[in-house]
Amino acid sequence: MRQIIDERTGSYSRQPTMGEAHASNMRIAAHVTVLHEGDPARRIMEVVDGAVMLTKLLPDGRRQVVELLGPGDVFGLASCDAYACSAETLTAATITTHDRSALERDPVLAARLLRRFEAQLCAMHSHALVLGRMSALERVAFFLMRLVPEGMVGGTLRLSMTRQEIADFLGLTLETVSRAFSELKRRGLVALLRADEVKIHDRGTMRRLAGAA
């Protein structure tokens, strides 16, 4: 079955999906929680289009954004019977869900998802380096350069995350993120067109700040 979201309410309905009997597709509005940390882990989810963030609630009540996902990425990992993270759409997104039991019955699906998880694990290692070794300015530069599509020469980045969500992803305070954006602008590296639009002027310096070669 396939599930289609109502963009106004966030609710969805099921419709048939061709091909995999264990799979269903969901069209989900922006800023909808797809799954909650600690819920029973019955499904593995795959982003078809759009953006999703994974979050964990810390013991002191703060939230850490642990991963940002785009097309092709997979989530719903669980070391036991409960989801390890919550997942929320940042933009309207299409998500394919698979029964966890299907991985045992479908080795082709299992191998494909494993390759995707391996790539995401490498990305999380980079995120850990950012949190442990980079300054606030370097972290914000890393975040912005991560959003630049491969092959993009000019143009404007549209941010689907609020400044607070960026802070939660980079392990910074909201005020520190705002100061870092202002400093990048002061140096002439970026232009802040709107709260959700950034134009990168000096990609070489930004790449060096972000730790890229």
Rank of each mutant, 00 (worst) to 15 (best):
C122E: 15
T94Q: 12
H22I: 10
A110S: 11
T97E: 08
A93E: 05
G151K: 04
V130N: 05
L90G: 04
R42T: 12
L113G: 01
L68V: 04
H98G: 02
S86N: 01
V153R: 14
A123G: 11
A23V: 14
A51K: 15
T89D: 01
I28Q: 10
L131E: 04
N25M: 15
L77E: 15
R43K: 14
L90C: 10
G155S: 06
A110K: 02
A23Q: 14
A23I: 12
G50E: 03
G132C: 11
T33C: 10
E118G: 09
S101L: 09
A123F: 07
Q64M: 09
Y83F: 08
T156C: 07
R146L: 09
R112I: 02
L131D: 07
L68F: 03
S101R: 06
M26T: 14
L113Y: 01
A123C: 13
V32M: 09
R133N: 11
V74N: 02
A51F: 13
R115C: 07
M134H: 09
I95W: 05
V108F: 11
V32W: 09
H36T: 09
V52G: 06
A111Q: 13
P71N: 02
V130I: 09
D73C: 02
S86V: 00
S126E: 15
E104C: 09
G155K: 03
V148R: 11
E67V: 00
I28M: 13
C80Q: 12
V66P: 00
H127G: 05
R105D: 12
L58A: 10
G132I: 10
S126T: 11
M124A: 14
G154P: 06
P59W: 02
I44F: 13
T55N: 03
L109P: 05
R42C: 09
L113R: 04
R63I: 10
H127M: 12
M53G: 03
P149L: 05
R62P: 00
R105C: 07
T97I: 08
V34A: 13
R112D: 12
L103S: 01
S79G: 12
A87E: 02
F75A: 00
A84T: 14
T94S: 10
G70P: 00
T89P: 04
R146P: 03
V130R: 10
G70K: 00
D60T: 01
I95D: 04
